[in-house]
Every structure is written in structure tokens, then in C-alpha cells.
Design a protein around this nucleic acid. Sequence first.
DNA 1: CGATGACTTGACTGCTGTCAACGTGCGTGG
DNA 2: CCACGCACGTTGACAGCAGTCAAGTCATCG
Lengths: 256, 256
Amino acid sequence: MKMPESSSEKVVSFSKVKVACQECSLKEICLPVGVHVSDIEKLDRIIKRKKPLARAEHLYRAGDKFHALFAVRSGSLKTYVTTEEGAEQITGFHLAGELIGLDAIADSVHPVAAKALETTSVCEIPYESLDALSCKVPGLRQQLLRIMSREIRDDEQNMLMLGQKTAEEKLAGFLISMSSRYRQRGFSPYEFNITMSRGDIGNFLGLALETVSRLFGRFQTDGLISVERKHIQILGHNKLSMLAEAGCVHKNALEK
Amino acid sequence: MKMPESSSEKVVSFSKVKVACQECSLKEICLPVGVHVSDIEKLDRIIKRKKPLARAEHLYRAGDKFHALFAVRSGSLKTYVTTEEGAEQITGFHLAGELIGLDAIADSVHPVAAKALETTSVCEIPYESLDALSCKVPGLRQQLLRIMSREIRDDEQNMLMLGQKTAEEKLAGFLISMSSRYRQRGFSPYEFNITMSRGDIGNFLGLALETVSRLFGRFQTDGLISVERKHIQILGHNKLSMLAEAGCVHKNALEK
DNA sequence: CGATGACTTGACTGCTGTCAACGTGCGTGG
DNA sequence: CCACGCACGTTGACAGCAGTCAAGTCATCG
């Protein structure tokens, strides 16, 4: 417990402050995008580095009072809503560089819970301070709006996915989406480890976990992917993309 | 064409400027919420009132350059994405007081199209001006963030709806949602006219239009609603709510 | 009054959920 | 080191919800 590197209780130990936004490998996709170097320091000053979350630990729960946004520094989380009956619907998986908690600004209460899928560390960004700072730093304000806008746009895409697509198209779309998200983060888009279970994927896509399992099998037989537990290789990226985009042809042609 | 009231090309004719935000019945749910009276004037000055759109007319199309947000003043619109194959997925229906175009901020391009479902008038809010003003008016900046946050939260709810629910639950949820949105706007939550077609509803909910039609019939037989073409009466609001919330009990219990 | 589009209703099919049994990998404790 | 338990994942059988196709009705408008 003397070593500041380990899971110390002190969140502002010197060794952690060193990993400031400027040095962070995620500054290209995170909040600092479009913010001047001099201003990043100001941002840095309001950000708190928290000790890492263990797998299955909650960052916040549905109903918690909102006071800060969180940027995923490493690891991954899922966010989910729980119905009165206790069933959960996953609303998203969140990788390094992503900002979560944006849905809580409206009512100052978190409408969803966030749970770590693996050992995960996050940066805490107190909303009050961010709001104050965003007023002085135009680039920061714009980036925050861009991030929220992107979130809305992506959610619209997800609605399309959930509403119109077949199980096959959904899973293909999911894989392509994960692939490109890993690419953005500098990892191989053709080989990666997913951190969520089959059940999580199914829940997110609106499919039974058995269906996910079956489709993984079929995609593998068809030579589109190679899958061994959590390890995924994308072999037929093009075909998968086509599968994902496909569908929707059958549906009502509404054009008036 | 001489009458400034009618569909004049001049968007800043005196008669229209009179209907400023202060006098607008929507100021309680629109952008001015939380903005001081003195500041609303500033907001007013950047807002342009456009001539009304006719039914089926586009406000913007997918791929259009983004330059302004729009607030629905009266009437209603649908927003939708179109796939390469030409099929469309409706991403939302938008009533008076709602802000649309928020999903376009990220890339300065509209990812969806917006089309009037009936005669509809909107206020145009140039984004550049809004951004500049929001920097000076804290209440405005916060309200914009609140609105975007709410949009994200609502989209998450829609994902739950599309992913987990049965056709019956989806349609019940849709009706309850429309009901409460009309209530918010001062209309009866128990009797209203929907402005979209069965096909639109089905498309939005991820159902075939025939299924929507059948369910309307069944809900009517069960005494939950009374429906005649576009006119809807909610007779069993409680039962409908329960139907909408139900479901999801069967799904995977993921709790670790 | 006919044409057009919106809606309804019926018959049939198939995708995907459910239930159930079994296999696999990993951590724990003897 | 091995045996066990547990969570996770796979596979099979079956059934039902909702999509598709098709025909027919109804409302609106030129």
C-alpha cells in the first residue's frame, strides 16, 4: 500500500498525475480533440484519475446522482438499464477514449448503470467544472457537442440495426463495428479479443444468446471469421460488411 | 404573393417576427428553458422563421451540409436514414417544441433526412450563431446540453424497445409515448390524431405494417383503445402502460 | 366516377426464441 | 497435481410470433 503505482486509495498521487491528457494515447479521440495545448492543461487540472475498477464492478448504478462524466482510459464497460422485473437491456459497450454518462446531464441522474467488463480505469470529469471550463475554451465546448452529437447519430444507427435487421445482419454489423472501433484505437481491426460474453452480445443486439452462439459457428464455417472463446479473427471483412449492410430490402418502400 | 402572412418568400416579414420566443407557447419545452428573459431576446435575434413546409416536403435530406438546428414550431416531421438499397428506417417522429438536427453537429453533415408529416413550420437556428451565443448565455448552453442528453437517453429507451420487446409491447409503448408527449404539449393524452401512417409506425418500431394494423385491431377489441384511421383514443391507459413495460422477463438474467 | 394510396384481413411460412442437455475451460481446494 | 464445481458456451428439438404474399375494402382527390 506504500507503492503509489498499485491500487492506492489516493487518487491524486504524483505518479498518476504524470499521465496527463498530453501524454495520453487517447487524446486524439477523447475530449481534448480540437483543444489547444495550453488549454489541455486546464482540462487536466479538473480531471481526476480514479483507481481501476475490477471486472464486474460498477462505475455507477441506475438512479445514482450525476456529478461527473467519465472517460474510459483503458479496459471496457457496458451500460445497461434494468426494468422493474429485473431484466437488463445493454445500451452500449464502451472502449478506451469514450465518454460515458452523457445521458445523465438532462435530469442529473444516471438513467443507466455502468459496469466494468474487465479491469478498467477511467478519468472522472466533474460536470460543474467542465461546464465552467467549456465556456472559456471554445474548442472544448465544440468537442463536447460533437461527442454528444456523434452519440445521438450512433444510437440512430443502432435503432436501425435493432429494428430492421435479421439476426445474421445484426451480428455481422456488431463485428464490423467492433472491428472499426479497434482500428480507430490503433489495434488490429482483423484480430481482437472481445470482452463481453455471448449473453451480453445477444442482449445488446436483441437476440438470444443461443442465436449468437449459432451464428458465430456459422460465420466460422463460412470462413468469415475465426472464433475461439473471446478471441475473434475477421477473415472476410468485405463479406461481413455486405452482410451487415444488406437486409432492409424486403421492408416497406415508404417513399411517397 | 403580396400578403406577408401567406407563403411569402421573405422569411423575416414583420408579421412573423412578432411570434417571438417570448410569445411562443413552446418556450416551456423548447430551447429558451432556463434562459433569462433578457437573453431570450438575443436568442430571438438569431432565429429565423421559415415558411411552412407542406406535407411530404423535406426540411433537409441525408447528406445535406449542416448549418442550422431546427425547432419544430407546429406540425410534425419524421427523420429517417436510407440504405443504399433504398429502404428507409425512421429514427424518430418530432412534435412541436422539439429540436432536430442535433445528430449533424459531429460531422457537419445531416446523417438523416427530415420530412414533414403534415403542414409544418419550423424555426431555423444557425449553429454558428447559437454556438457563439451559448458561450455568453450559460442557461442556453446548459439547456442545449440538456436537450442533447435527453435525446441520448430517449434513444437508449428506444433501443430497449426495439431490442427486447414483442410487437404488442412495442406498439403499446409507442402509444403511451405519444400520449405523454401530447400531454406535455397541453393536449389531451387520451385522444389525439397521429400524423404518421401505419407503415411509418411499423417501420419505426421494426414491425410490418400489417402487424401494426392487426394490433390496432386487437387493442380495440380488447377495449384498450379506440381507433379510426388517424384518430386514437386511449381507453385503458394503465393496461397499455403495463403491456408496454411488461416483457423482458423471459430474457437472460445476466447478473453476475 | 374512376384511380390511387392507405388500410384491413387471411393464409402460410420461417426465423428465432425457448427449453434442455451436454461440452469446455478455469479457479478453488483438497 | 488432480478432482470438483461453476460459469460460460455449444448444440439439438420444437414451437410460436411475426413477416410475407395476396386479395379485398375503404377513403380521398382529381
